[in-house]
Design a protein around this nucleic acid. Sequence first.
DNA 1: TGTTAGCACTCTTAACCAGTGAGTGCTAAT
DNA 2: ATTAGCACTCACTGGTTAAGAGTGCTAACA
Lengths: 348, 348
Amino acid sequence: MDLSERKLRILQAIVGDFIRSAEPIGSRTLSKKLDMGISPATIRNEMSDLEEMGFLTHPHTSAGRVPSDKAYRLYVNNLMQKYELPEDEKRVISEKITKNVTELEKTIQRAASLLSELTNLTSFAITPNQEANQLKYINFVPVDDSTVILMLVTESGKVSNTAVKMKVPYTEEDLTLLSKVMTYNYKGKMLSEILKLDIIKNFETDIEAMNRLVETIRPNFISILEDMLNVELFMDGLTNIFSIPEYNDIEKAKVFLEMINKKKHFTDVLLNRENGVIITIGNENPEDAMRDCSLITATYHINGKLVGKLGVIGPTRMKYDEVTSIIEYITENINQTFKLTGGDEDDE
Amino acid sequence: MDLSERKLRILQAIVGDFIRSAEPIGSRTLSKKLDMGISPATIRNEMSDLEEMGFLTHPHTSAGRVPSDKAYRLYVNNLMQKYELPEDEKRVISEKITKNVTELEKTIQRAASLLSELTNLTSFAITPNQEANQLKYINFVPVDDSTVILMLVTESGKVSNTAVKMKVPYTEEDLTLLSKVMTYNYKGKMLSEILKLDIIKNFETDIEAMNRLVETIRPNFISILEDMLNVELFMDGLTNIFSIPEYNDIEKAKVFLEMINKKKHFTDVLLNRENGVIITIGNENPEDAMRDCSLITATYHINGKLVGKLGVIGPTRMKYDEVTSIIEYITENINQTFKLTGGDEDDE
DNA sequence: TGTTAGCACTCTTAACCAGTGAGTGCTAAT
DNA sequence: ATTAGCACTCACTGGTTAAGAGTGCTAACA
């Protein structure tokens, strides 16, 4: 059996209607809604076929039909029309994303917050994977007799630092020299590379005093590098699920929130997804706990290079057209904002 | 009517039992449990008195009695016995708090996480209010031709920085000089003072070139200072409420989570609470949304000076004795850890 | 006078039942 | 191939009943 034009139209109508109403839809209502001049009985036959093909299911005998994951997939791939964002929504997005850009993290967080607000779903975003980020600059700043601040700067403009309590004596000149030597040695190397190759561990200079300095600083250096490699996860709109009928069941809401709240695990799931706009529907998700969710993620780029992700998670019944448009528009705006500068404003 | 010894014992038993079981307790069960040789009928009379005095309520005619907020207050103030933490729990706390202390924020977050784990409640913590924190050190680090990193260090050892895209030419010497001048001017001043008195706005030197530098940097300087003043809010154990019978109702869970999720507002509530271990029960809370929660907060100190808070929020029916002991022990450990060093390890 | 046994009463909860309505699947007619 | 008609299914609603827990009151008791 193949999908006739009419079957497609019926399926489209069912999916479209269910996405909005969350109610199973029956043959009679559908017949009226379609006004193609086909009777409920005919629709019933078609529906029966569609069910046999796996596009529809039945909660119980006397209920209407509900789209299956397979139907959503077909809908997303073929039936769905491009949703044009209203101009004012576009304007809001542009304004919020590009306004007040001081730190990448803040902008990304704002983007996530905006996303949940516009979609009424739970949104999330992760900062770029720093694997490919290169070290640009190392500096040691003496603050007082026993405290030195270790500062690292990456090519993308990310700055990290930590205060180090010094256990060996040092002079300002020592530190300046050490800054220069280390910068010379590590500049342009990827963060992960520096960590993996143990080149910090084996770092030695010709000067005895400096080696003692390195010795003191090494653990901090390693931990700050590790820290820079961590991607950060932002979420927003957690409580939005309470307004979704599917999650009116306390048990389901609990499972959902617990899944979302395993941040480490959730981050890994996101990192493992392919780049670009990716929609996974219900049982397409590799994670058991997500089997009745849909996940839409998209990729944003910093300097056209570093790659982060953001997206939404919600019931399989979601407005795929609208949500993808919103996500796309937001990522576009992020890309635009961080095109040249790597995180700092120069666009005023 | 006054509270006889017997009334107190009965009340104590009711509160104690209800805290554990969440079930209204009747005269018969209580009579057996107390084994003071008083009959259910007598207990009923006493209960009736206690109800009249406002310590007990009745969900409905044929249900057992339930403690009122007033009863919890009495329990907390007079009836409750000090709960001794088991040694192994103490050990776990000490280990987790003092281990791997690199950044204050991380330790506080870990403390919150630990707190929710041990209490099975929702926990939170805010980083110290930085109002009283003094600036210690200002430094400008040139990274490349057009980027300078502005770094601020406070007395407590907090380091913040931001990359600034420079719009005017500069030399390394300019920056070094500016660092020195500004440090000289601002060192020892409180962050809030620097911001409020507009002394940044009016900052001028004798040197024309330097004033142009200041001009470029000023907005970043202000925003980084503002940023440093923000307290951060950490939470953990959000989904713990789902295992609490009181919140088995989806509507209640929703209200709770939404209240908790207004982070800005919630932070303000915390900031406004007095220092020390503070327990507020149900309607003692000024916030409508918290009227059927209890909130326990405690204060921790950094360098014996800067003050942060942490605590738990949960149903009025909570194990006050156990929870306060845990919170106290955790704050003690934090105080100990940050006694001298202001955030950096030197205790190995 | 404080305590207690006894009993009628209240109220919740669970189970059961019938009625209703939405929707299906099948059959026979068009 | 389409459709009208009809019997059937099943969730949902509202009402009834019975059980159980617990109270409040009264009268008897130490």
